[in-house]
Design a binder for these strands. Structure first.
Lengths: 347, 347
DNA sequence: CTGAAAGCGCTTACAG
DNA sequence: CTGAAAGCGCTTACAG
């Protein structure tokens, strides 16, 4: 006995199933006495409508899929926080599709995972292929992207290049001239482009100041704290380390700070480090960063999706950036001769 | 046209829908030629079975709910990582039910959220009420708890009191005698008991050594970094601060380390800090902690649930604990007179 | 205002 | 091996 059905309730109340359905759905076309009687029967039988049957009948599942690299990118979790609240408030269930490896994207999305089961889909830091987008459109499943773009889909983005420029200006204003960059591999299987755009903006602004990054100071590794740390350590231990590092994510910036500690460089006195994103860890590691509104982007993405679900045509939005200074960057050290300080000449 | 249906495929292949269903479900009772023909039609029409219809027909939704305080407890995310992989591998969708406030637990669980829509439920750091448990049992929905207990349900737990004892022994062995505790409010709306059990084990072991915690050094606050930091600051700034602090979670331990920095105490020289859980942040803040296997507990919980879903009777498990020493604890300082060092007598 | 019936898209005995 | 039919539990025109 897996619970009462609408038929049992109808029988108990002495009405037709249609009438029970009407009171369930708040139809005004039910007389008050009947309504009461049905409500009483519902309570008496502890009846709860079967959402699966309802979904089959209405064509709406009341579930939204969220496709994201949940466990490799801490920023995703913060975005989820915003989305989860909005979705739950609107009565939607949130189904997670974790994508950790590029191949998974292919397996999961196009096929059974999304088809027919989700009323809408939120892509976070990931984008559907063109074929998938077409298919989703054909099925009339609204889609919103966060932190990625697509020509035909509403996207919530930031200006990554602009963020890179902001980081450059921040470090230049502190007098730094010997700068390093630590970011993602630019040819990754997910098509992540943020790191490349951030680097481009950064280098562009440096170029305007007549500065370029020495090839040995441009590090690109798979995303993650450990790879960043391991790649930064030799660079920071060398005879001529940079005086400042821009990492294209907080995760990597934290790796750089760990490398600095291992190399015996104090932050920010001997090395300035600035990250990007403003994830929670940036707060308790005291990292200065180019902050983007993570939770807000998730909330906004969910809101847009809800409106699209309601039949509205929605447009994407670009979110603002700001530098949050927590003290991991500082003025470049200058020794008595006025030369730019490096570890080699200090002490 | 929301995609082809089984009827269209049957028509296209010139067979009955039952036959199409049989090839879909790998029934051996289909001749090879028919099978090929049906497969061709499926491909030609780009047909994908509607999971909602299938769910209604079979009574299995192929979805599992995870009920947890996702965004207030970082440990939950690490547990999810383990669970997500196992569930996805078995073809189950993962539906998240975030519970941030005590009242939400009531609204969401018992009612529409879980009823009829989930094949199984994983509770993380949260437990169903007795009424909910009964209801889930009546509906034959298997349940597994992680980090909580219930008399009739399989639970994956740790020995919290034992962990508290381990922390105590660790600090006692380093010579600490003036000890503080920072943990959760013990009367919280969620029924979290870990913090209380950890404190009890800690105090028990101290008592065996003839030591007790001064009331002013026993801090209990809502879970979180900021409340821990704010409550610890005055304690650490006082004339007679403790030489070591046991926090019943890493999150709170990080708050204590922030307070130590604000109070001008160096860790571990002037203050030893040990946490509990071993979340990722413990790694990059260099926190010594009583480590529990978070990801493994999630994976194990998912496995048990899958086995229960397969009809097996499953039993819970107790996970092992170990101290991971990252250098935030050290020997107590002793001044020249041999008295136990405190900030007041040093220098 | 209300009931009977068709329909949502599958699966699965039941006959053949 | 295969088809026709009933059934899963709802919703929603359609008549009255």
């Amino acid at each position: 006995m897996r619970g009462a059905t609408i038929a049992k309730v109808a029988q108990h109340a002495g009405v037709g199933v249609g009438t029970v359905s009407r009171v369930l759905n708040g139809s005004p076309a039910v007389s008050e006495p009947t309504r009461r009687r049905v409500l009483d029967s519902i309570a008496a039988l502890d009846y709860r409508p079967n959402p699966v049957a309802r979904a089959l009948s209405t064509g709406r599942t009341m579930a939204v899929g969220v496709v994201a690299p949940f466990f490799t990118q801490p920023s995703v979790v913060e975005r989820m926080r915003g989305a989860s609240h909005a979705l739950a408030g609107a009565g939607y269930q949130l189904v997670v599709f974790d994508v950790e490896r590029p191949e998974q994207a292919r397996e999961r999305l196009g096929s059974r995972a999304l088809g027919g089961r989700m009323d809408g889909v939120l892509f976070v830091s990931l984008a559907p292929t063109d074929a998938e987008a077409t298919q989703l459109e054909a099925a009339h499943v609204p889609v919103v992207l966060i932190d990625r773009t697509h020509p035909r889909l509403p996207c919530i983005t930031i200006d990554d290049a602009q963020g890179g420029r902001m980081a450059a200006r921040h470090l230049l204003a502190l007098g730094h001239r010997r700068l390093a960059f630590v970011g993602d591999l630019e040819d990754n299987g997910f098509g992540f482009e943020s790191s490349a755009r951030r680097r481009e903006g950064f280098e562009e602004e440096l170029a305007a100041a007549g500065i370029s990054i020495a090839p040995s100071l441009r590090i690109q590794r798979p995303h993650g704290r450990a790879p960043a740390r391991e790649a930064a350590l030799p660079m920071l231990s060398a005879a001529d380390p940079p005086t400042a590092v821009f990492a294209s994510s907080d995760v990597q910036a934290i790796g750089v700070m760990e490398a600095a500690q291992a190399a015996g460089l104090t932050v920010p006195e001997e090395l300035s480090v600035i990250g990007f994103d403003n994830v929670e860890a940036a707060e308790y590691t005291g990292l200065t960063t180019v902050a983007q509104p993570l939770e807000e982007s998730g909330a906004l993405g969910a809101e847009l999706l809800l409106r699209a679900l309601g039949g509205e045509a929605v447009a994407g939005r670009r979110m603002p950036l700001e530098i949050v200074d927590r003290g991991s960057t500082g003025p470049v050290r200058v020794d008595r001769d006025g030369a730019l300080g490096t570890r080699a000449v200090q002490c």
